[in-house]
Design a protein around this nucleic acid. Structure first.
Lengths: 122, 122
DNA sequence: AATTATTACTTGCAATTAGCAAGTGAAATG
DNA sequence: CATTTCACTTGCTAATTGCAAGTAATAATT
């Protein structure tokens, strides 16, 4: 169900880089095809991992957010980033250091930011 | 690189169910096609996640084992199993309980069993 | 107010990948 | 020595992906 090339990257970028719109994913360095992106977002909604709403101040924009089920993938993504940092070419070095130094605190921070965004709006 | 339907399942089954031969994967409940299995095993070897050797007591058999890089995926797999147990239909309930009750101890056990198998043979 | 731009998509088609059934070769078993 | 087992490969079809172009709705610009 998350066994494809893009779904986990989408979730990672929503969780760690704050991506929220179609355009952000499409323009991201990773080069996903537009129809595939639309399909993956649709499936993630169907699986209950993300939700959609139209932006209140710009009717063209669709805002994607993680559900509780989606944010619960934070430990999985964190371990993946740490593994990649240890064994592959590494991305955001500062982020990796944060994760490694205090994993619990880092995860608590991710959850807190998510909760903040969700208490403000229904 | 692990972004496909089978690679993580193969690693999970090697780590948690002790799978070591082609036949075990092929007959496993998950129904992978034989050419795809061969391809994924080849790629996992190329990525340095598993290694192959021919069985000393049966020249037909190929024994697949996790490398250090492979066993380092244990925290990722553990978090995935826990996430799935919390949000999806759940598999091995006893295993999940072990993981949840003492994650550190569980991971230490996985690593210990791997180290044991690797100190015996070069 | 009309034109242009932006955003989030869809559509059509070619290319890549996956899945299935059957086959191969080497080693073991009866 | 014939049969079985094991780890694959091969050939073909079906499904998925990737690319380029197009569309509908809203927003910004002139």
């Amino acid at each position: 169900m998350l066994g494809d090339r893009w779904s986990l990257l989408i979730i990672r970028d929503m969780m760690l880089r704050g991506f929220r719109t179609y355009k952000e994913f499409l323009e991201c360095y990773e080069g996903i095809a537009t129809n595939i992106l639309a399909d993956r977002l649709r499936k993630l909604v169907a699986y209950g991992i993300i939700t959609t709403e139209t932006d209140a101040s710009d009717g063209r924009k669709v805002i994607y957010s993680l559900t509780a089920k989606g944010i619960d993938l934070a430990p999985v993504l964190t371990e993946m980033v740490l593994w990649a940092a240890a064994h592959e070419d590494t991305g955001n070095q500062a982020l990796v250091r944060l994760m490694r130094e205090d994993k619990k605190k880092f995860l608590a921070g991710v959850r807190q930011r998510w909760a903040d965004r969700h208490s403000a709006r229904p």
